[in-house]
Write a protein that binds this DNA or RNA. Structure first.
Lengths: 370, 370
DNA sequence: CAGTTATAATTTCACAGCGAAACTATAGCT
DNA sequence: AGCTATAGTTTCGCTGTGAAATTATAACTG
């Protein structure tokens, strides 16, 4: 973040980063600014090296060729780290959040000093691999993060009021940014994913927990952390650990689903097995998966009802469940819908665990660009 | 709306209208603008008569007395009209949306020309009572309103794609504004009610239907029209006319509640009787009211979960039900809540039907001030 | 191939919004 | 009367902006 750059210059730079190389004329039309203003706004960006003029491109028709402006994505390196209870995931990315290297290692323990030095070690190795200064390091955790400084409360790590950024900054030189994990994932979608093109969208993640991010009018709406996890779906449904009957956590988290199927079959069944069994036609597993997909559909309908946002991304490690039971998803989404109103289908974005780390990298990119 | 006024002048004028008489110094501090800028912004407002300097006020301590700036609320007249299936409600207000006169008359029929001339008649009578030119007329209806021009779809009036504003403009001289009824009510809360002080709040209305308005960061979020009416609460609950089991409509609308109690007692019971019976301890009525209040609580919890907004206003003609069963409301609100997170109690704003018309007047005020 | 047209980008210039500094206007306190 | 504190104004310079004119480039035309 260069504080000397005028805000409108920054907006131009972000547009180029997010939407790719464009000419000044295109940018002027898109932003509603005049051509002279664009020339003026772009100059300091060129001087600072934020943008470069790439080849001039012949468009159809006559007239002078336009010169494309672009970021040099590969000039910059960012690191993203996501902490879970079991593992630490890290990625090295360029400015466009494209993953160049990754690492996964088991969580040493949940003691804060252990985690701090372990993360510092990962970051240091990533810096070596980068072969150049890293411009920013983003770290995300599940749970409440306060002002980007402290982990106020993380049930996954059993942490409370840990001033994690400060602690980590003692061992990491690069600019450091701390955020909630779903916030990072939502930002990644906003700048480099589905949300790029849309001013409003919601992100619902399914896996060990249920995550939720909301963007309205290009801005991230600060929701409480993962409150959607306890959104009620069916007051007669299964029980979640917090004692809620039929909330999202009880229906769709991988642990809950595995438990239910284990109980039905009288033997321990993993989440992956549940999905396989469901695909193979096992009645119990199929039922559990269908109910979970139905619950996800219900949740998307509630999101649309209460926020007016109808573009919804489904993602998370466990999202395959809705691909297995698309009809249940659809049924849950439209069951209580108004007849006249057409309902957009959610977009499914399968993802592995590195995607979480990539979200962390985007936290750093967003905070430090340009 | 004076298009020649700079945007920041307008912001100052709105602040004075909404928050009452203030000195330039106060406004400068609040808006973060400098004192000179405030002098400059206020001048055209004084010239145009939007603001006046009222008496200079001695504050504590020494120094020059500050001069309060205020709108002349009673210099201006606005009319608000709300259409329902059975009746037309109209109010005459001043600039601060204080009701000076009101009128209620039965809907002549649902034929568009009848309604148009009836509304034109009401407006004309209100203009007579105003004794001066009316600065704006706001008309609101339940249902989808497109671009302030046409009633795209109103199940209450059985109207579809009626270019109501244009039709009415042929018989009304004053500037005319058309909007959804809940939008008007939300705007009224935003400028002249509970929302004045808060950047984020939600409005939930209960009555013949269920209404929902959302303001985030001082801005009205465009939600679909009354989709919350079919928010599911309990998939084993009562049935609504659209065939949904246990949706908000089935639980909390006055018609549904009256029907349920009528059925239980084997005799026709009105909504008001239901509330009286519940207060008197009648088990069936008390149960229906408690379930309704519980459903309202659930809905507020869902709103908070999915929007992050925890300040919620409960209103509408039927809102007394939650006053009768506050414990059920609270139970529904916290039942699925996270334990750590403290939950704000909703604010209850009882209202009569004229409040709807006042909301319509606010539509006109907001659109035409200054 | 020179002239015409179309598009991109830049330069020049004038205007609007804003705040720092200095100034005027009050009012209380000593 | 002189000092201090607060409100509001005037002056002036900085910054962001677009209209208009200018330059650069490319294709099409007769």
């Amino acid at each position: 973040m260069r504080p000397d750059l005028p805000a409108s210059s920054r907006a131009i730079a972000i547009d180029v980063l997010v939407h790719g190389a464009q000419s000044r004329a295109q940018l002027a039309k898109k932003t509603g600014l005049s051509a002279p203003t664009l020339t003026r706004l772009v100059r300091p960006l060129l001087d600072a090296g934020v943008l470069v003029e790439s080849e001039s491109v012949r468009t159809t028709g006559r007239g002078r060729s336009s010169v494309l402006l672009d970021v040099v994505a590969d000039d910059h390196r960012y690191v993203g780290v996501k902490l879970t209870r079991e593992s630490i995931y890290a990625v090295l990315t360029n400015l466009r959040a494209e993953v160049l290297a990754s690492e996964m290692l088991p969580e040493p323990s949940l003691d804060v000093p252990d985690v701090v030095s372990c993360v510092a070690g990962v970051v240091s190795r990533m810096e070596d691999r980068a072969g150049r200064p890293v411009r920013g390091v983003g770290v995300t955790v599940g749970g409440r993060v306060d002002k980007g400084e402290t982990v106020a409360d993380s049930p996954f790590l059993d942490w409370h009021e840990v001033p994690f950024r400060t602690l980590l900054a003692e061992q990491v030189d690069a600019p450091l940014f701390l955020a909630n994990d779903v916030v990072g994932l939502t930002m990644a979608q906003q700048w480099f994913g589905y949300g790029r093109t849309y001013p409003d969208f919601a992100l619902l993640t399914v896996g060990a927990g249920v995550g939720y991010g909301l963007v309205i009018n290009h801005e991230l709406v600060p929701t409480l952390v993962s409150p959607i996890g306890h959104l009620p779906v069916d007051p007669h449904g299964p029980l979640c650990p917090a004692g809620h009957r039929g909330c999202m956590t009880a229906f769709v988290t991988s642990g809950a689903m595995a438990n239910t199927v284990s109980l039905a079959h009288g033997r321990l069944t993993t989440y992956d097995e549940v999905l396989e069994l469901a695909e193979a036609g096992d009645p119990a597993a199929a039922r559990v998966v269908a109910e979970a997909a139905h619950a996800v559909g219900r949740a998307t309908a509630a999101i649309t009802s209460l926020t007016g946002v109808d573009r919804i991304i489904l993602s998370g490690e466990g999202v395959r469940l809705v691909e297995i039971a698309p009809d249940s998803l659809r049924a849950g989404r439209v069951q209580y819908a108004d007849e006249q109103v057409s309902v957009l289908d959610p977009v499914i974005r399968p993802m592995d665990f590195l995607e979480w780390a990539r979200g962390a990298a985007v936290v750093a990119i967003k905070a430090s660009f340009p």
